Structure formats: structure tokens, C-alpha cells
Simulated assay, not measured.
Amino acid sequence: MGPVRIVAVRHGESEANLAYRQAGTDPLVYERGDDEVTLTELGREQAAAFGGLLAALPADEAPELVWCSPYLRALDTWAIAQRSWGADPLPVTVDERLRDRGWGLLSAYNEAAIAQRFPHELERWRAEGEYRYRPPRGESFGDVAVRLRDLLTDLRERADGRRVLIVAHDAVVLVLRHVIADTPDADLAALEEFAPILNASVSTWHTVAGRLRLLHFNAIHHL
């Protein structure tokens, strides 16, 4: 059957989130590796608030297992949330399939910097659309969907009958909605309606009649 409940949280505000927001429409080259970026002070506060939400859950809704992205900002979010929650440590699986969408050769650049340095890629991005575009050596949203389907197949066996917390990234949470709903990848662009996924937002699915049903998505009432 698989998990009876899945809670997916995006990491708290990261240093890169802040740098990109401060750059606005100015070109930005952000040199730190995507897996090395950690949380801002606000991000740490958001992670602690998420831990408070977990502490307030009824026992039959609280996570029993954790699956986490290997990226530092996700690992830090869970570590802070765990301390804030105050419960006994849960089993944690760090899974590469929960990493953020890969931007390959463009990973250091915001859109304005891409326009300056790689104008042909910006043209291709705009022509193909956000959800079809695959940066050089990077991933499309369809590529993210492939790895998340593989993850869910594993969860059906390894988390059967359990409540699972997923700590990951905006692209992962967004595409998880698509994959759990079993929507064809031709419809990926429809996800734009549900973006952006906010920092430390919570999305929850619960099993009804053997199928995961969405209870709420991108919720931030705890922040």
C-alpha cells in the first residue's frame, strides 16, 4: 500500500534565496555549490516554527520516518525542526533523489546573468517554457518527476503503513504533487498554478481507500 501519510516541507530560507532576492533584476553569479548553501537567520526561525507545528500534531498524525535531501539547507532544516519538536529522534534516510532541480552549467547564475552570458539559453528557456526546459547538464521538471516516481516506488515497500516526512526543495514539493496525482508529464506546465513553493511551507497527503489524497498544499499558517 505504501505510506499512510506524507508530509513534505521545503527548507527554510537559504543564503542563496536571500542573495537572489536582494539581486532582484541585477545579474548575480552565486559561487557557492548548491549542496553547500545553508540557512539564514530567518530560515532557522522558520525551521524551528515547523518543529513547533510537529509538536502540536496529534500522535496519530506525527511523522514516524524522515526522508531528507542531502543538501545542507534541507539537513539543517530538519535538525533545527527536530530540536524544536523535542520528540525522540526519528530514523532519517538521506536520499539523493530528493535533491533540488539541477541547473547544470547555469547553476551559478540568476536569470539576468544568464541573459548576459548565455543569451541563446535564455531564448531556448523562454521558447520551451519553464517545465520543459533542460539546462545544459541540468534537469527539466520531467527529469525530477522520474526520480520522484522511483522514490515513491521505494516508499511503498520501505514505509508501508507508516507516516513519512519529506524535507526537500521547492521543485521537489511541486513535482511531488504531480507524481502523487499520477498526472501525465505532458501536463507538467499546469503546476505553474501552484508555484511558488514557499520556504518552510507544508504539504500533506493522507491515504483514503488506498490512495494518497491531498489535504493541504504549500501551507504557511505555522510561520
Score class of each variant (00 low, 15 high):
residue 100 D to L: 01
residue 142 G to F: 04
residue 50 F to D: 01
residue 10 R to V: 09
residue 105 L to D: 10
residue 125 W to Y: 15
residue 116 Q to P: 08
residue 12 G to Y: 01
residue 213 R to C: 15
residue 208 V to N: 09
residue 85 W to S: 02
residue 188 L to V: 09
residue 9 V to L: 04
residue 129 G to K: 13
residue 171 A to S: 15
residue 120 H to I: 08
residue 5 R to W: 03
residue 57 L to N: 07
residue 132 R to W: 10
residue 10 R to M: 09
residue 21 R to F: 12
residue 71 Y to T: 03
residue 126 R to I: 07
residue 10 R to D: 12
residue 183 T to M: 08
residue 107 S to C: 09
residue 140 S to C: 08
residue 174 L to K: 03
residue 106 L to D: 00
residue 15 E to I: 14
residue 15 E to D: 13
residue 32 R to I: 13
residue 163 R to C: 02
residue 71 Y to P: 00
residue 23 A to E: 12
residue 99 R to A: 11
residue 57 L to W: 05
residue 178 H to L: 10
residue 37 V to A: 04
residue 104 G to V: 06
residue 126 R to D: 11
residue 63 P to T: 11
residue 79 A to C: 09
residue 98 L to A: 05
residue 130 E to R: 15
residue 26 D to L: 15
residue 82 Q to S: 14
residue 153 T to D: 10
residue 45 E to C: 02
residue 113 A to D: 04
residue 18 L to M: 15
residue 11 H to S: 05
residue 30 Y to N: 07
residue 46 Q to N: 10
residue 198 L to K: 14
residue 202 V to Q: 02
residue 104 G to N: 05
residue 178 H to Q: 12
residue 54 L to Q: 03
residue 193 E to Q: 15
residue 41 E to P: 01
residue 138 G to S: 07
residue 130 E to I: 07
residue 210 G to Q: 13
residue 149 R to Q: 13
residue 46 Q to W: 03
residue 179 V to F: 12
residue 34 D to P: 01
residue 57 L to F: 08
residue 190 A to G: 13
residue 190 A to E: 13
residue 21 R to Y: 11
residue 164 V to A: 05
residue 59 A to F: 04
residue 171 A to Q: 04
residue 77 T to D: 08
residue 88 D to T: 11
residue 223 L to S: 07
residue 2 G to C: 05
residue 27 P to R: 10
residue 90 L to F: 07
residue 96 E to K: 05
residue 176 L to C: 04
residue 92 V to Y: 02
residue 132 R to D: 14
residue 110 N to H: 10
residue 209 A to P: 03
residue 3 P to R: 03
residue 101 R to G: 03
residue 94 V to Y: 00
residue 195 A to M: 12
residue 129 G to N: 13
residue 109 Y to Q: 09
